[in-house]
Amino acid sequence: MILKAGARLRSTVCSTEIIVVKAPSGDVSITCGGAAMGDPASTEAVAAGSPAPGTGTAMGKRYVNADGALEVLCTKPGAGPLACDGDELGLKEAKPLPASD
């Protein structure tokens, strides 16, 4: 699908929900747990799956693809994993910053 920044997607196999922060220009396939993600307006919410230790999507974390063209924010946690065109998304590590306001 063609993604747009601000688009919200829901997993069809676990409780994960994401919002697209940065969208790649071309047509991509975003999956969660191996299944295509859907529009939250038309996709039934699924109860939380239990992720294997060390995996799973975490609330408030950002995930990126290898070239950084796709960035998503996890708005509801779940079992995951998130992938783009078959490649698993990586956690975007952020250096902690002091509160400035």
Binding site: G60, R62, A94, P96, L97
Partner: peptide, 17 residues
């Protein structure tokens, strides 16, 4: 909205407090 959210996402950790 994209300006303010990008400031927050770029500088604040979710539940960082």
């Amino acid at each position: 909205h994209r300006h303010i959210s990008s400031y927050v996402l770029g500088s604040v950790e979710y539940m960082g407090a």
